[in-house]
Design a protein around this nucleic acid. Structure first.
Lengths: 191, 191, 191, 191
DNA sequence: GATGAATGAGCATTCATTCAT
DNA sequence: AATGAATGAATGCTCATTCAT
């Protein structure tokens, strides 16, 4: 009755339902809400993701994968500074739960590996931009990764704000990453 | 076990236990964990704060009060730019849960009033700094309020980082607030 | 442990377990006691009745429905006086919690509607009996409704009494409803 | 500072506060509400009544004592039937928690003894009335004791009714106790 | 003797997870 | 493979009771 293809479709259905639900109501939203939003039974969620944490991890992997792909696409761009800005804008537009809390608390191996990939991809991007003089000399990919979520977190705290307001705060942060008027940074970024 | 006089001390005990617990494990940490950390019974928490929300609100009020007081102290400073930086450094050092999510979700009246005070105090500070040319011309107190939590949020995601790492990210954000090399900001900050 | 079909049975199981438990220990009996008596988990109670109040309301509706049905069956009886007595006997045999406190405090809409039905049905029954001269001229359906629980309440206070003792007290009350030797009643019954 | 007399006064204060509180909000009202109503500390309640049950028992004893005293006063009355009616009216006017549930569930020895006294006093009263032909020949003091609370229980279920409505239901019950038109009662009243 | 702070058992309710169908 | 019923651990909160002052 249900083909392999249906299973794949359901998995996607669940992932996007979960992304919406968690973005809207936080990760504490019950699994049942995700199931309802997907039009599926609660049991089906657990068939695909044995644990709620697994579902969250899959979401993170999905999201990080998209970011890695974009970063890799952008890594050869002429204007590396613009590329970094585009990357950060893309990240900000994904309202999903790209909190680093997640990146951090999700213990999933695959997720961890993906984060490593992301770190390398962003670092490449940032290194280019720094070398081109588009970013301050003392900033690293890790720094950018850590600042990546700032617009999202601000927006999460302002549920009624106009949807593009994040651009304002990304602009400020990005100005802080530029070489003009940069004051030397304390501490190394560490691992 | 505790005398009448210790009741006051217990309230403080509870507030700081709650601050630690919530900073470490998020607001979803159970009241029982707060009680255990304070070395008190669960019921005692509810004697002092009839509701979990009341406890959170008290925490917010406490914290915001400290920030308002500092902002008011700093408002007359010669170097207003340095004053803003000092204010942000102080805010970052308070590891407590000064998430805007809290500031926003706490429905307590007193807390709301305190937040209004904070907004006014920061705005005064920022206005001075802007007028002195220490901050970019298009930044407002509200913007600073929203960016105030960035170092804390980054640190929360990095539980094993060296304790002063926040200085690095505050430095970047603050460079973004300076007038040198500032690119005009999109959107008004709105209320 | 239970099939889809047993879910219906479980609802009944829970209702009768609750009826017994509440009749025996009062409505303040914990839900866990109801669950235990039904041989089910505490969570299962909440699956079927989202709230303790919902469970109580369902019980009331069930009970009142049975009474309404009987009253409607009896309304055409030849001997309306005997019909009223039969009705009251049936009500007394249902040990359940047909306290008016419940009828009153249950805020459930459906329950309220059912009580209206009951009042109308009893009133019809009583009106007939009064017209036939089987009841005193100054008694109403509302009065009978209010006296309906007397035997139950007496029995609840006498847990060790012989199970049919209620008949004695119903007999006394019913004699008080007869026209013979009736002294005029003070106050109207009011709504 | 506090004399023996104050202690006695406080005991009375507490008893009447408890009577009011429990009559108004049910026996589940917290001890703290009783203390507040009495204008005393919670601890003081427990000094006088080591247990909430003790307080309730004391209330019952108080109440039953009043009833016993009245019954004894009335036992020599000319019109014994009128005396029984007066006794029942007095009982109905005491809105307090004279539920038999209490009489039954209170395990206090003194309370039990007092109930024995009450039973004997009522029985004497009822015996006289029966002998005078004012009550049906098959009714006993125990029956009257059990029916004594009916008006109270009906009123408890009708919080908004006019305060004298109980007279209507006492009248019905009392008519049921009269010899006119009495149908023989089933079952002995038992102990 | 009086007070109110502290305590923990008890209760309603939610939700991740398991499993029979 | 999908479903939703059953389950119990966890949580916020209330309240009788104890006890230091």
């Amino acid at each position: 009755m249900s083909s392999r293809a249906d299973a794949v479709r359901n998995r996607e259905l669940l992932l996007s339902a979960a992304a919406e639900e968690f973005a809207e109501n936080g990760v504490d939203a019950p699994i049942s809400a995700v199931a309802r939003r997907a039009g599926l039974g609660k049991g089906t969620v657990f068939r695909h993701f044995p644990t709620k944490d697994d579902l969250v991890a899959a979401l993170v992997v999905d999201h990080v994968t998209r970011l890695v792909d974009l970063a890799n696409d952008l890594v050869g761009a002429e204007d590396a500074g613009a590329a970094v800005l585009e990357f950060l804008s893309f990240a900000a537009r994904q309202r999903q739960l790209l909190d680093i809390p997640f990146l951090a608390h999700v213990s999933d191996e695959v997720a961890a590996r993906k984060q490593g990939e992301l770190e390398r991809a962003i670092t490449a991007l940032v290194d280019h931009a720094r070398e081109q003089g588009a970013l301050r000399p003392d900033v690293t990919g890790i720094d950018v990764m850590r600042l990546m979520c700032v617009p999202n977190e601000i927006m999460r705290n302002l549920p009624d704000a106009q949807p593009d307001l994040w651009e304002r705060y990304l602009a400020i942060v990005f100005d802080g990453l530029r070489p003009e008027g940069a004051h030397p940074l304390p501490h190394p970024p560490a691992a």
